[in-house]
Amino acid sequence: MLRQQLNDSLKEAMRAKDTRALATIRLILAALKDRDIQARTEGQGDGVGEQEILEMLQKMVRQRRDAIELYAKGQRQDLVQREEEEIAVIERFLPKPLDETESEQAVSAAIDELEASTIKDMGRVMALLKERFPGRMDFARASQQVKSRLG
C-alpha cells in the first residue's frame, strides 16, 4: 500500500512539475530499493514490509531535523528551508504521530500491561510499543519515558 502511494505520488509530482517533491520521492524510492536488495540478499524474499518502510521514513525525517540544526548554526537558511521542504514531503507518507499526552498514555499502558517494574523490562516494553505504533511514535522520546518510569 505504501509502495503504491509512493509511486503514485512520484507520478503526481512529475505531472505537477514539483521538483522538491519529485527529488525527495526519488530519494525515498532509491533508499527503499537499497533496503529491498539488502533484504533479498539476507534471504527475505519480497523485500522490506510496511513497518520497515515507516521506520526508514522516520529515520529520514530525523536525519533532516539534525541537518537543520547544523545548517541553522552555520546560518545557511537556504539549506534549512530545503530540509524543511523535504520533511514536509516525507511526512505525507507517515501516519499522524502521537502527541506528547498520547505517547505518555501509550507508555503507561504498555508498562501496566506487561507488569514491567524494573529497567530490565525496558526491552519488552519498547518491543510492544514498536509493534503497536509503527511510524506514529517517536521511539527515542518513548525510550526516555520508559526509562524514567522504570528507572
Results as ranks from 00 to 15, higher is better:
31 A>S: 10
33 K>C: 00
29 L>Q: 06
51 Q>N: 15
77 Q>T: 05
11 K>I: 02
53 I>Y: 05
56 M>T: 02
22 L>G: 01
11 K>Y: 03
56 M>W: 02
83 E>D: 08
62 R>C: 13
60 M>G: 13
116 A>V: 01
76 R>H: 02
70 L>I: 09
29 L>G: 05
111 I>A: 06
139 F>H: 12
30 A>K: 15
35 R>T: 04
139 F>P: 14
5 Q>W: 00
145 Q>L: 02
11 K>R: 01
134 P>I: 00
117 S>R: 05
23 A>L: 14
93 F>T: 06
8 D>T: 13
44 Q>H: 12
78 D>K: 07
33 K>E: 14
73 K>D: 14
74 G>N: 14
36 D>A: 03
44 Q>G: 00
92 R>F: 02
151 G>N: 09
39 A>W: 09
100 E>G: 00
26 R>C: 06
96 K>F: 00
71 Y>A: 13
116 A>M: 06
82 R>V: 00
114 L>Y: 02
147 K>E: 01
52 E>I: 12
53 I>C: 05
71 Y>W: 09
26 R>M: 13
5 Q>C: 04
11 K>M: 03
132 R>P: 08
40 R>N: 11
47 G>T: 02
82 R>H: 07
24 T>F: 04
54 L>K: 13
69 E>D: 15
2 L>P: 07
93 F>R: 01
30 A>H: 12
61 V>W: 04
118 T>D: 13
40 R>F: 15
34 D>C: 03
99 D>A: 02
108 S>L: 10
20 R>D: 12
121 D>M: 05
31 A>V: 01
25 I>A: 12
52 E>L: 11
95 P>K: 05
90 I>G: 04
15 R>P: 03
38 Q>G: 03
25 I>T: 00
120 K>A: 14
7 N>Q: 10
67 A>I: 10
8 D>N: 14
90 I>F: 11
135 G>H: 02
55 E>M: 08
59 K>S: 12
80 V>C: 11
96 K>N: 06
140 A>G: 08
88 A>Y: 02
115 E>S: 06
9 S>R: 08
70 L>Q: 03
16 A>R: 15
78 D>E: 10
121 D>E: 09
97 P>D: 11
110 A>V: 15
84 E>L: 14
48 V>T: 09
35 R>I: 00
47 G>V: 11
119 I>C: 02
77 Q>N: 12
30 A>I: 07
121 D>R: 01
146 V>W: 04
56 M>H: 01
129 L>D: 14
